[in-house]
Amino acid sequence: MTVTAAGLGGTVLVQTRRGALVQDRWPDLVAAAEAQLPHGLVLDGELVVWDAEAERLSFEALQRRAATRARGARTLAARWPAYFVAFDLLQQDGQELLTRSYAERRALLENLFSEHALTAPWTLCPQTTDLAKAREWLQSWTDVSGVEGILIKSLSQRYLPGYRGWTKIRRRDTTEVIVGAITGTLTRPQLLVLGRHDTGGRLRAVGRSVPLRPDAARQVAEHLTAAAPGQLEGDSTDVCGPVRGHRVRVRRGEVGRPGVPRGGRPDDLRRGQAAVADQAIQAGHRPRGGRA
């Protein structure tokens, strides 16, 4: 998402990665840009919405705001204010900066925030070249819903429109669950329905998997058998309710978000990054809730 500050007699533009102009959906951001940002400026960053009642980032609220215009947009802005997490500066004082190195653009961005004392909804994306701090971010900051990992960028890289050229490292948490049912067929399962026992020993559904890739579906299918009549009764620890006519039994397993284990692996942080001092590491938000 880019924000272009208004020039003399101009208007503030909010543009998605695909080029759509959506400033009519973000009146609070437009007002903040008119009040705080200097003319001739283009910021690149990520829009997020904070749900004060739930005390978390809300992708659902972000979706509603992105789809609502005019009067409805102002109503939702009051309920769910937007914040812009800036991670790059593409133009300043009307001068394009795309060919400058990321290190130069970052320095100008930091100076912009300090010189103009920018406050909410403008937020400077944290950055470090310290590997230990990056590991800490990967472990602790990803406890916040909507923050799924860190991004690694080359400090010498120029801005490449339409091409990210970044390395993203996601956090992955694993936990033991019971796979008790599926959608699809026993030979081609599509989704796994996951369960856990409550304090009374009753198996409760707690979630589902993402759609299975063909290779994963084949591996899961090898362990599936149809539940025998009456098997769901009693103190079974390996079955869950029926889904689309199929009751299944499967061994216990692990599920997790794709990426790296909690805390990250040193090898993953170093892979392709021989000199960490020449890399900029940033906290990364969930793509679907950010750059539209």
Score class of each variant (00 low, 15 high):
residue 65 R to P: 05
residue 44 D to S: 07
residue 11 T to G: 05
residue 4 T to W: 08
residue 63 Q to V: 08
residue 1 M to R: 00
residue 48 V to Y: 08
residue 49 V to L: 10
residue 83 Y to D: 07
residue 8 L to V: 02
residue 100 R to F: 07
residue 44 D to P: 05
residue 61 A to D: 09
residue 38 P to V: 12
residue 81 P to R: 13
residue 23 Q to T: 02
residue 99 T to F: 09
residue 90 L to Q: 02
residue 50 W to E: 08
residue 83 Y to V: 00
residue 36 Q to L: 08
residue 23 Q to W: 06
residue 61 A to F: 10
residue 98 L to I: 04
residue 29 L to M: 15
residue 41 L to D: 12
residue 69 R to Y: 05
residue 3 V to Y: 12
residue 74 R to M: 10
residue 68 T to R: 07
residue 55 E to A: 15
residue 11 T to K: 14
residue 46 E to P: 07
residue 74 R to K: 13
residue 56 R to N: 04
residue 66 A to N: 15
residue 84 F to P: 01
residue 83 Y to E: 12
residue 33 A to C: 13
residue 33 A to I: 04
residue 77 A to D: 15
residue 52 A to Q: 11
residue 24 D to S: 14
residue 59 F to T: 00
residue 58 S to C: 09
residue 53 E to V: 09
residue 66 A to F: 14
residue 51 D to E: 11
residue 40 G to V: 05
residue 64 R to F: 10
residue 92 Q to V: 09
residue 15 Q to I: 09
residue 76 L to K: 03
residue 91 Q to R: 15
residue 42 V to A: 11
residue 14 V to Q: 02
residue 9 G to Q: 06
residue 24 D to E: 12
residue 58 S to D: 13
residue 67 A to Q: 15
residue 54 A to V: 01
residue 64 R to M: 14
residue 15 Q to V: 14
residue 66 A to V: 00
residue 24 D to V: 10
residue 63 Q to H: 05
residue 61 A to W: 08
residue 19 G to E: 06
residue 32 A to L: 06
residue 25 R to V: 05
residue 10 G to Y: 07
residue 97 L to D: 03
residue 83 Y to W: 14
residue 27 P to H: 07
residue 21 L to D: 13
residue 9 G to C: 02
residue 78 A to S: 14
residue 82 A to W: 03
residue 15 Q to W: 01
residue 24 D to G: 05
residue 39 H to G: 11
residue 82 A to M: 05
residue 13 L to C: 03
residue 72 G to E: 06
residue 90 L to R: 03
residue 54 A to T: 00
residue 48 V to G: 04
residue 1 M to L: 09
residue 90 L to W: 07
residue 24 D to N: 12
residue 25 R to H: 15
residue 77 A to M: 06
residue 27 P to I: 05
residue 58 S to E: 11
residue 100 R to K: 14
residue 91 Q to F: 03
residue 11 T to P: 08
residue 102 Y to V: 00
residue 13 L to E: 12
residue 91 Q to C: 15
residue 88 D to H: 02
residue 50 W to F: 15
residue 101 S to D: 04
residue 24 D to H: 08
residue 61 A to S: 12
residue 52 A to P: 01
residue 23 Q to G: 11
residue 93 D to R: 13
residue 7 G to K: 05
residue 35 A to Y: 02
residue 102 Y to E: 07
residue 22 V to H: 02
residue 14 V to E: 04
residue 95 Q to M: 08
residue 42 V to L: 11
residue 24 D to L: 11
residue 44 D to T: 06
residue 49 V to G: 06
residue 79 R to L: 15
residue 31 A to M: 08
residue 20 A to H: 15
residue 1 M to Q: 00
residue 55 E to N: 12
residue 53 E to L: 03
residue 97 L to E: 01
residue 70 A to H: 13
residue 67 A to E: 14
residue 28 D to K: 13
residue 11 T to E: 15
residue 49 V to A: 13
residue 94 G to F: 10
residue 35 A to W: 04
residue 15 Q to S: 05
residue 30 V to F: 09
